[in-house]
Design a protein around this nucleic acid. Structure first.
Lengths: 253, 253
DNA sequence: TAGTGGTCTAGACCACTAC
DNA sequence: TAGTGGTCTAGACCACTAA
């Protein structure tokens, strides 16, 4: 990555910069390697730091870079494939479940969640917080909303707290026979709580996966899971192996 | 949305701003309504325009706003659910296909695509360009890579061009018996070509859906589709109806 | 032509990390 | 304490849209 000057073409500088950096990343850097700091890079390309940052932001969005305050900018490893098992329907807490229960509270959900669950306006539900780890890194945080009607065996005044209570809800949920699950994926940004759990700054881009568990004709539970968009590739249908994205090949570490 | 002054708390201004604007959007604006321009808004909240823009960017990322150069910033309608039919495996060009063939070329694919297809390093493939429209708006652009071996009936020197040739490739592809399809979703940014087709600026966030069509033990075709992340919610498993996202309820138009 | 969002600059200070 | 990325400012000019 020499002291390249940008061509004076009618294309945004940050876009050219992103392209140049992207190519340099492919050919001159290894995964995990630290890039020069932003002030140096900006000077090297003859642009303002803000412009350089615009290019870096894009590359981070595409999962090519990882930036950490106080540390520096490093070359990110390829995204990890995370399976959203759709084949045989999986109940939360079942044998193949990859989620770890964190805790469980009871609260009135947002109007949107309540509508999907078919619960009343001021009806509270169990909210099980779970976290998903892959390759030793946190990749997703989930809120599983369970109406009381789905787990009638659970005492409403069950005083157990934390993971114990979460497991109790999941166990009771498994009694129901799951008909199917409906999934949706969309782009969102991490709230303060999710950001902390995912080890990112608030506002970081996330893939929001909403899963509706349908049993006995109704919605037995609703999961809203946020996956780190920078490090995750969500796979479904089968396996989790294909390694494709806009034609870029990266060096192995 | 009054001339609110921001509280002097140790939280980024753009984050507070985003929250304030988000609430105002819920309570004081209708879908399609035009917001005050950026200079006015910035002055109203007592911040620099760049800071205001950081908040608007977040809201646009979440699909709450739509910004158009020369026009203004408008309140976006709720995201449209777009189905990625996974149930009964669907061949491209089949009866329920929602894609429109645009044209077809022949070229050597990127290394990553070639690897997934199992084609040789310099082996060319058919590349069918298709576009997907929903509610009258373009929502996705796709490149379907088809090795010659998957469509042996097609003359290599077939001079037909454009949609006609695209349809010929798809027709020939349908002879094969599809075993299954593997999907992956990840975050990306639109290249120049995709951006134009999706009516967005280059670099706009997109959801990249990679689909591997498996037939007779091998990869018969590989689709790389880019969906507008601001306007789309990808659904699979069943139906396309659930309307959930981080608890925000929007006014209907 | 007037008004909009998009790009860019050259600074400043802050929050965090690691030494 | 030194160095990093994160936030913020107050300007400037450009590209585009619509009247």
């Amino acid at each position: 990555m020499g002291t390249t000057q940008l061509e004076p073409v009618p294309e945004p500088k940050y876009w050219q910069l992103k392209t140049v950096l992207s190519e340099a990343l492919d050919s001159e850097f290894e995964v995990g390697e630290i890039l020069p700091n932003e002030r140096d890079l900006a000077a090297r390309f003859g642009v303002a730091r803000a412009t350089l940052r615009q290019a870096l932001e894009q590359l981070e969005l595409e999962g090519r870079l990882q930036r950490r305050r106080g540390v520096g900018t490093t070359v990110a490893p390829p995204r990890v494939g995370v399976s959203l098992g759709t084949g045989p329907h999986i109940w939360p807490g079942g044998p193949d479940d990859v989620w770890q229960p964190v805790d469980c509270t009871t609260a009135v959900p947002s109007a949107a969640v309540a509508e999907a669950l078919g619960t009343g306006r001021d009806e509270s539900v169990h909210i099980v917080r779970r976290s998903r780890v892959s390759h030793g890194r946190p990749v997703a945080a989930e809120l599983l909303h369970v109406p009381h009607s789905s787990v009638p065996g659970l005492s409403a005044i069950d005083a157990s707290s934390g993971p114990a209570r979460a497991r109790a809800v999941l166990r009771d949920l498994r009694r129901l026979e799951l008909e199917r699950q409906e999934n949706a994926v969309e782009l969102g940004s991490a709230g303060t709580a999710d950001a902390k759990e995912l080890d990112r700054l608030p506002g970081a881009p996330v893939l929001v996966v909403t899963t509706r568990f349908v049993a006995a004709g109704g919605t037995a539970a609703l999961s809203v899971a946020t996956y780190r968009a920078d490090t995750c590739r969500l796979t479904f249908g089968d396996s989790g192996g294909v390694e494709i994205h806009d034609g870029v090949q990266r060096k192995a570490s």
